[in-house]
Simulated assay, not measured.
Amino acid sequence: MISIFIVFILFAVFILFFINKLTDSLCIQKEIPEERQSGVFRTINVLITILLISSFVEILYST
């Protein structure tokens, strides 16, 4: 149980880092103004966090 938790946390950190890197590339490519970038990052991070939490809950109750 603990090993699943540790692996999932590492996976989640990697996913969030990679998604933020892709979001930064999107903001640069689409030339999104600086004042709107924080909203874009916040929205994407909240949605990804919700997906990661729901995935963790599904894994938790399936084992």
Rank of each mutant, 00 (worst) to 15 (best):
F18Q: 09
R36P: 06
E58Y: 13
E58I: 07
Q37E: 12
Q37T: 12
F14K: 10
N45T: 09
F11I: 02
S25G: 08
F14C: 03
V57D: 04
L60C: 11
I19K: 10
I19A: 06
E34T: 14
A12V: 00
F18W: 08
Y61P: 02
N45P: 09
S38M: 15
C27D: 03
G39A: 10
T23K: 02
I50P: 12
S54N: 14
L22G: 05
L47K: 08
I32A: 04
I44Y: 00
I15K: 02
V46K: 15
L51I: 11
L47W: 09
I6R: 10
N45K: 14
R42D: 15
Q37I: 05
V7T: 09
F14H: 05
F14S: 07
S3R: 07
F8V: 00
V13D: 06
V7G: 02
F8L: 06
E34H: 10
E58S: 11
K30M: 03
F8N: 05
R42W: 09
F56L: 15
S54W: 11
I9C: 06
E35C: 12
K21A: 12
M1D: 03
S55T: 11
S3I: 01
V13H: 00
E58P: 04
I48R: 04
V46E: 08
F11P: 03
I59K: 15
S54R: 12
L22Q: 11
T49A: 15
T49I: 10
M1K: 09
I19R: 04
V7Q: 05
Q37F: 01
I28H: 14
V13L: 02
F5R: 10
P33Q: 01
I19G: 02
F18M: 10
L60Q: 13
L60K: 07
G39E: 08
S38E: 14
S54L: 14
I9V: 00
E35P: 12
I59D: 06
I48H: 12
V40H: 00
Y61G: 02
I28F: 10
P33D: 04
K21S: 08
I9L: 04
Q29M: 11
I44R: 09
R36E: 15
N20E: 10
I44T: 05
R36W: 05
D24Y: 15
I28L: 14
L22H: 03
I4W: 07
L51N: 13
S3L: 03
S55I: 04
I53P: 06
E31F: 10
E31S: 11
L16P: 04
L16I: 03
I2N: 02
E31M: 10
S3T: 05
K21F: 07
I15D: 03
C27Y: 00
L51D: 06
I6C: 06
I50M: 10
I2V: 07
E58C: 05
I50T: 12
T63K: 11
